[in-house]
Amino acid sequence: MANYNLESSEGRVEALRRMLLIRAFDEEAGDRFADGEIPGFVHLYIGEEAVGVGTCAALDPDDYIASTHRGHGHCIAKGLDPKYMMAELYGKAEGYCNGKGGSMHIADVDAGMLGANGIVGAGPPLATGAALSIDYDDRDQIAVSFLGDGAVAQGQVHEAMNLAATWDLPVVFVVENNQYGEGTPVEDQHNVDNLSDTAQAYDIPGLTVDGMDVTAVAEAVDEARSRARNGNGPTLVEAETYRYRGHYEGDEEPYRDEAEIERWKDRDPIDSFTERLIDRDELTEAEFEELQTEVEAKIQDAVDYAQDATPPEPHEAYDDMFGEIPPEIERFATAARTDGGTPGGDR
C-alpha cells in the first residue's frame, strides 16, 4: 500500500498535510538560513510541493527515491522526519547524516531515500542501480529518480535512461521542470520544448503533466509505476512546475520578473488543492486551520530540536569513511579523541 493514496479522502488530506509541511519546513529553513543559524547552501522546494508529494503518493513505503540538491520536499513526501532533517541542516549529530551531509545530502537509505545530491544529474544512474538491485533480486519495488530540467542536459542522465530502457528496469524518471536551470531559462538550455520528448530516443514513454496539480502527478506516476512493476521498463514523467524562491537562498534572481512569479502563484499547488478539498467537503475551513497549526507546531518542534541538538565532536569527522577505519585515518581520529591535537609529524 502506498504511504497515502490520492484515491481516498484521507489520503488526499494527508497529501495536503505533507505539502503544507514541506512549505512550512522550507520557509523556516529559509528564515533560519537568513538568520545565520544554518550554514552552507540551501535550495528551497517552495512552489514545487505537488511534484514530490504526488510522486510519493503513488509509491509504496519500500520503493526507492533518488533526489536532487533541492531535496527537502522529496524527503518529507517520502516520510522522513522533519526533526532529524532540521537537525541535519543545523549540522548536528542527531541529524540524518550525523551532521556530515547537510541540506544537499540528506539521506535515509533504510527508508528508501537514496540521498539528496549536490551533483546535477547524478541521481538517475543511482536510481537505475537501485532498480538493477530490485530486478536482480526479483523484489516487488520500483525506484524513482527526481531530476531537474537542467539535469536533462547531463550526459550521465541519458546513459542511465538508455541503460534502464535497454534492461527494462523498474525505474521512473520524474523531471521537475521548474523553468530554470539555476539562472538560465529552460528554453535556453534545451532544443526540445517538451523535455518528455527526450524519452523517445530510448523508446520509452515520456509524458508531460501539470506539476502544480498533485493529482495529475500522482496519476501519471501511478501509471508509470504499474508499467515498471509489470516488467515493461522505465517511464519519463515531466512535471511542469515553478520554484518561487531563487535557485539558492540569496540568489538575486536577475533572470525573471515579479509578474511571472505571480502568474505561477495564481496556480499555487497548495491553495488550489485546499480549495478543491474544501469544495468537495473533505475538509472544512476550520479543519484546514487546524492542519496549518499542527504543521507549524511540528516545524517549530523541529527547529527547537535542532537548536538543542548536540554539535558533533571533532573526532566524528573521521568516522564513516569506510566500513573499517584504515590506519591512515585512524591516527587522526585517535589524536582528536585524546587531546584534540594532531598526530606526530604532520597534518
Binding site: 526540445v192 517538451n194 518528455s196 523517445q200 509524458l207 503533466v209
Partner: peptide
C-alpha cells in the same frame, strides 16, 4: 501547438507520439 500529443496517452492507450521535430 507545441503541447499537443504529449500527455498520459503516450503511456497508456495506444496514442502515437508526434514530437516537436
Amino acid at each position: 501547438n507545441p503541447a499537443a500529443g504529449r500527455d498520459v496517452r503516450r503511456l497508456t492507450g495506444g496514442a502515437s507520439v508526434v514530437d516537436n521535430y
